[in-house]
Design a binder for these strands. Structure first.
Lengths: 158, 158
DNA sequence: CTTGGTGCAAACATTTTGCAGCACA
DNA sequence: TGTGCTGCAAAATGTTTGCACCAAG
């Protein structure tokens, strides 16, 4: 059930100013499907926005617990799927054991620099990659709908 | 326990001619670690080579079963880890439910075209991507150790 | 012979689902 | 006030592990 997609701006840093619009997008998407905007869903989205980057379901659960609004695992997973289906977040896989997610809008891009020493992950936007991607697809008579690039890095002197 | 890495040629298609060298690489890597080259391990590697591309643990199990040499799930998973640790195969993640793997040597590249309609996956090599990747890393004072690109595509007329 | 390997089944971790009661629209 | 939502606990899925027996070197 793909809900209402939203245009993905990819230069803006996630800031408080996007909380309101994103909430609104979510409410609208829910309403259009006859679904309800519950406090749990609102809290989950707020918490995700506050992450300002990549997160795991587990971290989200912990963060909610710390805030005093503990939400059940089931609801968190259900809401993640919902947010994904309306393109507010997207799943990112680079680790078999855990699904990672990031905000679609306000995320800095779909290229990940994964430091294989420290485990740190940085997201960034690479406009050239979109050109390259589209060129590859065009050459095959296909149309690119999205992409994910993961670069595994280590300190330069390693 | 990273075993003996092998140089990754990436233009060659996997063909029968690489079976012998790869087996040899595997045997040598095992011997260096004091591990044994068992019939199960040999069959698993042969079956992987015959796949000529991407595969899942499940497919591998089925293929082995069909061949009449049924190998246990446990052994398959253990061998996959072993093959990964000596760089004969590498894990590819683009689906939460299942780990995919591909041959390192003889695989056509680490760019995946994933058809979101049919589920078909094609691997290819994109040399420009390596330049781009290295440029990005250099700009940040990091060193790229590897990368994975997934492009989600659909038919051009969609 | 000695050490590591295999198969089985049980254990695991993450995610999903069924259900009874609760709450938004 | 009715449908959808929540939490719980149980199920499901893919992968890992413990163990007793087996086999490569």
């Amino acid at each position: 059930m793909p809900l209402e997609p939203i245009k993905a701006g990819n230069d803006a840093q996630p800031t408080l100013e996007i909380i309101e619009p994103l909430c609104a997008v979510f409410r609208r998407a829910l309403k259009e499907e006859g679904l309800k905007y519950t406090p749990e869903r609102a809290m989950i989205l707020d918490t995700i926005i506050a992450f300002d980057g990549l997160f795991e379901a587990d971290q989200l659960l912990d963060a909610l617990k710390e805030k005093g609004h503990s939400v059940s695992k089931a609801t968190v997973y259900r809401t993640l799927k919902l947010l994904e289906s309306c393109n507010i977040i997207q799943q990112v896989l680079f680790d078999r054991d855990q699904s990672h997610y990031q905000l679609t809008v306000g995320s800095t891009g779909n290229t990940l620099l994964i430091n294989i020493d420290s485990g740190e992950v940085e997201t960034l936007a690479v406009p050239e990659l979109i050109e390259l991607r589209d060129k590859i697809c065009a050459a095959k008579g296909l149309k690119a709908q999205g992409h994910k690039l993961q670069i595994f890095v280590s300190a330069s002197d390693a």
